[in-house]
Simulated scan of single mutants.
Amino acid sequence: MTNGLFVGLVTLDLIYLAESAPKNNQKIVAIDYTVAAGGPATNAAVTFSHLGNQAQILGVVGSHPMTQLIRGDLANCQVAIADLDPSTNTALPVSSIIVTQSTGERAVVSINAVKTQASHTSIPPDILQNVDIVLIDGHQMVVSYDIALMAKAKNIPVIIDGGSWKTGFEQVLPFVDYAVCSANFYPPFCRTEQEVFAYLNAFKIPHIAITHGEKPIEYLSDSKTGFVDVPQTPAIDTLGAGDVFHGAFCHFILQESFTDALAQAANIAADSCRFFGTRRWMDSQ
């Protein structure tokens, strides 16, 4: 069985399906709702586990009462937790998400991991023992740097989920094998995608990809450029599709070429958009 370590954000997601997001001073009644553990690395870990692997999330969870919801959800998804701060009773970040029924687009309010940053001394010993692949989402950057450094020394592939630029990524990038970024990922002084590719390529990252939602994925791999098509699917909910994509990519890259792994991950992510919330798509698999 393949083992993956996912480093980053753990949140509690309150997800509502509604006709539209509320306007100022407006109250709306949701059509549906669900509660789940969230965060890019967390949802990627859930996807990786669902595809038949062993997944572990390395993040701050703690002992606040709301963590029972997170622990229960991740236990149900067979994702292990390596807690960077088990004694903290601070409330975890809560994300409130409204998904528009007609388009599948989402609006998100969250504080991310700003108040739950861990130090490198919190990393459990032997955390990389038997690990085959590492994904970093950038929300625990100090910890991520040490993990990336150790993974490189052990020849464990390192993937970054570049949803958006986060300060400190520049220290992690020298150890990255696969940079899989969104169109919103703009490092300092980068204004175009070509500048983003050039910036990442300067760190000698062998494989780089930029996703564009339902549009083709652009990639630079071993000096070769190209596009990978994304399946066109009627979207019920796009929430977490990027996270699902990254988790699926971690699964397929250990078996396939870079472009094939991107294509296979795109298939899984597109399928997840046909269902409300970040878990129900797995019931259809």
Rank of each mutant, 00 (worst) to 15 (best):
L5R: 00
L5K: 04
V10N: 10
L12E: 03
D13Y: 03
L14H: 00
I15P: 01
Y16D: 11
E19S: 13
A21E: 01
P22R: 10
K23A: 06
N24R: 15
N25H: 09
Q26W: 09
K27I: 03
K27G: 07
D32P: 13
D32M: 11
T34G: 08
T34C: 12
V35P: 03
A37V: 05
G38Y: 01
G38S: 02
G39F: 02
A41N: 04
V46W: 01
S49Y: 02
N53V: 10
Q54K: 15
A55W: 07
A55G: 00
I57M: 08
L58M: 10
V60I: 14
V61P: 05
S63M: 06
H64G: 09
M66K: 05
L69W: 14
I70E: 10
I70V: 12
D73N: 10
Q78T: 12
A80R: 15
A80H: 13
A80I: 08
A82C: 05
D83P: 08
D83M: 06
L84F: 09
P86M: 07
P86V: 10
S87E: 15
T88H: 13
T88N: 13
T88E: 11
A91Y: 12
A91N: 14
L92S: 09
L92H: 08
S95A: 15
V99G: 00
Q101K: 15
Q101I: 00
T103P: 02
A107N: 11
V108W: 05
I111M: 15
I111P: 09
N112P: 04
N112H: 12
T116P: 08
T121Y: 14
S122M: 14
P125I: 13
L128R: 00
N130Q: 13
V131A: 01
H139W: 06
S144R: 03
Y145L: 14
K152M: 08
A153I: 04
A153D: 12
K154G: 00
P157W: 01
I160P: 03
F169I: 04
F175I: 03
D177M: 09
A179C: 12
A179V: 05
V180R: 07
S182E: 11
Y186G: 04
P188S: 12
P188F: 14
C190G: 01
E193I: 02
Q194H: 02
Q194M: 05
V196Y: 02
F197E: 04
A198N: 06
Y199P: 03
Y199N: 03
A202P: 07
F203W: 01
A209M: 15
I210M: 15
H212E: 13
I217T: 05
I217S: 03
E218M: 08
Y219D: 08
D222S: 14
G226A: 11
G226D: 07
P234V: 11
D237G: 04
T238C: 04
T238E: 06
L239F: 10
G240K: 02
V244L: 04
V244T: 03
G247K: 06
F249T: 06
F249M: 09
F252G: 01
L254N: 13
L254A: 10
F258A: 00
F258T: 00
T259P: 05
A263D: 10
A263Q: 14
N267H: 14
A269F: 03
A269Y: 00
S272C: 08
C273I: 09
C273L: 08
T278F: 07
S284M: 05
S284A: 08
